[in-house]
Design a protein around this nucleic acid. Structure first.
Lengths: 203, 203
DNA sequence: ATAGTATGCTTAACACCGTTAAGTGAGAGT
DNA sequence: ACTCTCACTTAACGGTGTTAAGCATACTAT
């Protein structure tokens, strides 16, 4: 009686359909401007069906964020495992982060800029094992390698990691959310940020 | 025939009452979590009255932002005109910027994070002459002073200003929009960013 | 003084929103 | 054949920002 398995498969398929529809709408029109009813319309089910697969709208977004983070993680891991000079590796990791954001600005907006926070404490715990944390962990490993190689003056791994993240995020988010501002050349600006931070950290 | 002027005055007073009520609610509970009906309730008028004084909810917040950002401008100008060592002046200007953002996260969110893309071209123009942008101008003046004093290696004023802004914005916006992340000590993080950037720029 | 008008505000409603309680109906298990 | 499970729907709740229409009051002109 494989019918049970078939139904299981179909359920999973619908879950993915919801995710796909929501991602497309969220990325294209922004989380706030897309209603659950519109997502439901796109998949041709009633709005309430979504609630059988996701607890609420924020959870739906969270699931999409996980997928996006996963892509970033993969890129960063590849760079880290290339095993160059640790400082060069960190620099390239930061570049990858910013480039990723600029390549998928709507995804980036969704996960890092218009990030609505979860109301539940329980969820927060889950989040700390999320892909976002994994990406952060990758950056952290890069920083740690530099410190272990005695390339940096400052030795507080966590602080340096968070600062590097903030530097990358600052550039990425401003370029995305203020496209009409008279920016200097974007590539130069990104490199200036990363190089200046690394130079400032150097022993 | 001063009755016209009196009515004018009374209208202006109500406008300020609305602004005051809205500011208190927005700052205390967050823009998204405060409805027009709640603002109206606080001033003991009907919700629709607000629309006689402000075009919509966003305009209401925008007006509040202008007021508050004027405060930031003043602070930054005071620092800049204190006439210390230009680098120290810049450092303190950056601190003031970040501190301001963390003090008024909802104001900061509207003008720098959830920056409306193109509601109307007309509005955008207004926005670029806003107090937020004036604050940017102040930062630019600080950077220029450092470069003129030959304290920095990099001499592209615009690029350096934008990088410093992005550094401050990165810290500020991440701290605001991801309050549940396990940040290291916030003050240290902010100082680390500013100091590292300045050290990295030094001649 | 009185009729007319402009002004300031309110009532009621529109068209949405996220979410949930209750109900339906097809297929599985006995 | 009958019950039961369960994926799904309908209808509704209590909110949201916003607007059209109406109502008094105060001012103006005759």
């Amino acid at each position: 009686m494989g019918s049970k398995q078939r139904r299981e498969r179909e359920k999973e398929a619908l879950r993915q359909d919801i995710l796909d529809a929501a991602r497309e709408l969220f990325v294209h029109e922004g989380y706030e401007n897309v209603s659950m009813r519109r997502v439901a319309e796109k998949i041709e089910y009633s709005p309430t069906t979504i609630y059988l697969y996701f607890e609420d709208k924020a959870s739906l977004l969270y699931a999409i964020c996980e997928e996006t983070f996963a892509g970033l993680c993969k890129r960063m891991e590849t760079i880290r495992k290339a095993g160059d000079d640790p400082v060069e590796s960190l620099r390239r990791g930061c570049r990858a982060y910013v480039d990723f954001g600029l390549q998928y600005p709507n995804h980036y907006k969704l996960t890092f800029i218009n990030h609505p926070q979860h109301p539940r404490d329980e969820k927060r715990q889950l989040r700390e094992e999320s892909m976002g944390m994994k990406a952060y962990g990758n950056l952290r490993a890069g920083v740690e390698a530099c410190i272990k190689a005695k390339q940096f003056r400052e030795t507080n791994v966590e602080a340096v990691t968070q600062m590097m993240w903030a530097g990358g995020h600052g550039i990425t988010s401003l370029l995305i959310s203020m496209p009409d501002f008279p920016w200097v050349n974007k590539d130069e600006l990104i490199d200036l940020m990363i190089d200046t931070l690394i130079d400032g950290l150097r022993a």
